[in-house]
Write a protein that binds this DNA or RNA. Structure first.
Lengths: 248, 248
DNA sequence: AAGCTGTATGCTGTAGACAGCACGCAGAGA
DNA sequence: TCTCTGCGTGCTGTCTACAGCATACAGCTT
C-alpha cells in the first residue's frame, strides 16, 4: 500500500449509507486491482485497507471474501489476502473456458431467443460498430461485453449465465488491450452470429461463437508474446520483509 | 431453526482451534442444509446460528458469505440469509452446465493425461465397481465423484477444474438419489471413457462423457417427475410472521 | 369499520477491542 | 562463523457492543 495519496475520493463514498459499505470497498478494491495500483501478489493488510478506505476491518474482510470468490485475490487462511497474480497459463485457460461457455450459450440462444432479444442484440451490435467508428474504445469494449452477455442471457440457462459472468469479470482483467487490437472484424462476426441465432441454426451459432472467442484467445496470446511479458510471479513477501523492502 | 436439539455435536468442533471457526460453521451448515434440517427458503438468523453453534456472529457471517457464493444460501443485503430454494429448472440447468464442463474436460484429458493419471482413473473405477458390488452406496457415490473430478484434473485446465468443482458441489445437493438409481451402467460408461482417454481419442472421450452426463441428467428429471415433487417454493417468511407461525 | 401513523422490537451492518499465532531478530552456545 | 533458542511485534480471527432500518402492532382519525 503506497500510503494515502489515492483513496480520498473512495473514502468519500462512505457518505451514502443505504448500500452496505462492503459493496463500496469491493468496488474500490476491484478498481485498485484492475488499475494495478495494488500489485499482483501484494499482501493486503486488512487494517491498512480499512484505514485507507475509512471503514472498519469488518467490511473490508467481507469485501475480500467476495473478491476472493471472483478470483481477484487469494485468501490464505491465517495469512491474509493477496492480490491474485494471474499467469499466462491461467489467462489462456480462462479464455478457453469462456469460449466453451459462450459457444454453448450461443447454441442455446439459437433455440430459445425471442424476437425481442434478437432485436436487442442487433441494437447493441449497431451501437458497437458506431462506437468503433468514432474511436470510442471504452464504449466499444463495454458494448462488446454487453453483446456477449446478452447472448448468454438469451440462452435461458441462468446457471450458465452465472458462470459466464464470473469468467467475464476475470477476463476483463486482461481484456482491454485485446479489444483494442481486434476492432472491426469482431463486430462482423457478431453480426453473423446474430443471423445464425435468428435463423435458429444452433450448430452454426455455436460454431461462430467458438471461432470468434478462439480468435480472441489467440489474439491475446500473440500479443502477450509480442509484449514479451514473461509472466514473472511476484511472490508475496511475508509481512516483515515487505516493510523492509518499502523502506529501501 | 427448530431450537437446540441437534447442534451439540457440531458445537463440539470448536475445541480444535487451528482451523478457523468459519470453516466449521460452513461445514456444519452445509450438512444442515443438505440434510434438510434447514428448510429451503428458511430465514437464517445470524444470532440464532451463532448461539446454536457456540460461536459469535462474525464467523457465521463469513460462513454465510461462503455458502452464498456456492449457491447454498441466498444473501439479501439488509435482510439476511435464506436457505436457497432450488427449483427443478435450476437443477436441470446445473446438470446441463456440468455436462458441458465435463465433456470438455474429457476431451482435454484425452490430450493431456499421463500414464499415471490414467492408472489412477482405472483404480478409482475399479474401487467404485467393488463398492457397488458390496452395496456400499455412499462410497460408490464418493468414488463416482472422484472419477469425474480426476478426469477434470487430467484436463490440465485449472480454471475448468475450479468451475467444475463448484458445479459439482451444488449438484451433490440433488445427486445421491440419482446415483442410487443408475448403478452399474454408470461404471461401464466410465470404463469406456477411460479407454477413450488412453487411446487419445479426444472426440470419443468428449462424446462418451456427454452422453454419460446427459443420461444422468435425464435420470434425475424422470425421477423427480415420478416423485411428483412439485417444486413448490417455500417463500421465506418475514421474521415476525415466522415467529408467529412457530407458535401456532 | 377501515386506513393511517406512531412506537416497540428484532435483525443486520459496523465499529472497536482482545487473544493468539507466526514471523523475524537478537543473543547465547558450539 | 553458524545454529539454536527466546523475545518482540504485526497481523489475523474472534468477540462484544452499538447504531439504524424494517417490520408489525396498537391506537388514533375519519
Amino acid at each position: 500500500m503506497q500510503s494515502n495519496e489515492l483513496p480520498k475520493e473512495l473514502a468519500a463514498r462512505r457518505i451514502d449509507r443505504p448500500v452496505p459499505l462492503r459493496e463500496h470497498v469491493y468496488q474500490a478494491m476491484q478498481e485498485l486491482i484492475i488499475s494495478r495500483r495494488l500489485a499482483p501478489g501484494q499482501h493486503l493488510v486488512e487494517s491498512e485497507l480499512a484505514q485507507m478506505l475509512g471503514v472498519s476491518r469488518q467490511p473490508v474482510r467481507e469485501a475480500l471474501q467476495w473478491l476472493n470468490n471472483e478470483g481477484w485475490v487469494d485468501l490464505r487462511p491465517g495469512y491474509g489476502a493477496f492480490v491474485h497474480a494471474p499467469t499466462q497459463d491461467e489467462a489462456d485457460q480462462l479464455l478457453a473456458v469462456r469460449s466453451l461457455l459462450e459457444s454453448e450459450s450461443a447454441r442455446l440462444a439459437a433455440v430459445h431467443a425471442d424476437a425481442e432479444g434478437i432485436a436487442r442484440l442487433r441494437d447493441l451490435n449497431r451501437q458497437g460498430i458506431e462506437a468503433l467508428a468514432s474511436d470510442d474504445v471504452d464504449t466499444a469494449v463495454a458494448l462488446n461485453a454487453a453483446v456477449h452477455r446478452c447472448v448468454t442471457e438469451l440462452s435461458g440457462n441462468k446457471v450458465l449465465l452465472d458462470f459466464a459472468t464470473q469468467v467475464d469479470r476475470r477476463v476483463r482483467w486482461y481484456y482491454t488491450p485485446i479489444a483494442r487490437q481486434r476492432g472491426e472484424q469482431s463486430w462482423q462476426e457478431h453480426a453473423k452470429l446474430i443471423d445464425a441465432i435468428e435463423n435458429r441454426d444452433a450448430d452454426a451459432a455455436a460454431r461462430i461463437m467458438k471461432e470468434h472467442t478462439e480468435r480472441t484467445r489467440k489474439s491475446y496470446l500473440e500479443q502477450r508474446v509480442e509484449d514479451g511479458e514473461d509472466d514473472q510471479q511476484l511472490i508475496a513477501l511475508p509481512t516483515r520483509r515487505r516493510r523492509k523492502a518499502a523502506k529501501a
